[in-house]
């Protein structure tokens, strides 16, 4: 874990309310693993107060930079989206557990929803490294075509790629989870997913029925990012003191089988 003042080196609008940001930080670029996140302080002051967590989308160790995807959902993300290259941000990272690689044997299916594509791009790239090699099939869904942010980056690091939009304006029409059964029928060693809670719950259920290991990247309102404040917990099936686990420290990657998806569906996640 590093705490560094970094420079925003590149900003690019990649969707109606989505920006790709690149930061200069050799330490984070050199140590981040797929599934980990960075915690970005928005200003030098305390309003907006809290840092914002973003999954690392990719790293460029040679250049000493890394990228994140930022969807504008409020005042804090708006500040980031409007920041000019050259601006400085204090960032703590890499944080969280990350995906366990190379994971279960067999072909991999990725299921991305909206801006949830970010950690899966990093994962897919890692799964094409010789040490971790897996055949990767990706499903990427969004409400409209414009929300398929950075689909090109994902398609470039996958062996098969299917885009799905709810309105049919790009790729197949429907929900991304409508296309998962066919993927599972073809056989899959493991499914990795990141996106809205409802999508993740459906992915987890299909994988449970198909007895396919499934790992999800979760988000939650986050305070400290390092496991102290116990603010970012999600409900698991475990009883007692283990029932609520921290997205920042115990996650953000969880085995879908340990999550209490009923409680998640009742509104326990911001997605």
């Amino acid at each position: 874990m590093y705490a560094r003042t970094t420079r925003l080196t590149h900003r690019e609008q990649v969707g109606p309310d989505c920006h790709l940001l690149e930061f200069d930080c050799p330490e984070i670029a050199g140590s981040a693993r797929p599934g980990q996140f960075v915690h970005v302080r928005l200003t030098g002051g305390f309003d907006p107060l809290l840092r914002r967590p973003f999954s690392v989308m990719n790293i460029n160790p040679a250049q000493g930079s890394f990228q994140v995807l930022v969807r504008t959902v409020g005042r804090g993300t708006m500040l980031l989206a409007q920041s000019e290259p050259g601006s400085e941000f204090h960032i703590i990272g890499p944080l969280g557990n990350g995906f366990a690689l190379p994971g279960p044997p067999g072909e991999v299916v990725l299921v991305a929803g909206g801006v949830g594509v970010a950690p899966l791009i990093f994962l897919a790239a890692a799964l094409h490294q010789p040490d971790n090699y897996r055949y990767v099939r990706a499903l990427f869904g969004a409400a409209i075509g414009g929300d398929l942010c950075s689909w090109l980056e994902l398609s470039l690091v996958c062996d098969e790629f299917t885009a799905v939009t709810e309105d049919g304006s790009a790729g197949e029409q429907g929900m991304v989870t409508d296309f998962l059964p066919a993927q599972l029928d073809r056989g899959a060693g493991c499914v990795y997913a990141c996106g809205p809670t409802a999508m993740l719950a459906e992915v987890a259920e299909q994988c449970r029925r198909g007895s396919v290991p499934c790992f999800v990247s979760l988000e939650q309102w986050m305070g400290c990012g390092v496991g102290v404040c116990l603010g970012c917990v999600i409900p698991t099936r475990a009883a007692g003191a283990e029932h609520y686990q921290r997205v920042c420290k115990d996650g953000p990657i969880f085995d879908a089988a340990v999550i209490d998806w009923e409680a998640m569906r009742r509104g326990c996640g911001p997605g």
Partner: peptide, 24 residues
């Protein structure tokens, strides 16, 4: 031991935050 309150437990407010951890 206490498992604490269900999430969401925190959210940001102007120049502040609300928490309801529940003594986990």
């Amino acid at each position: 031991p206490r498992e604490g309150n269900p999430p969401p437990r925190i959210c940001e407010t102007p120049a502040g935050m609300l928490n309801a951890i529940g003594l986990q």
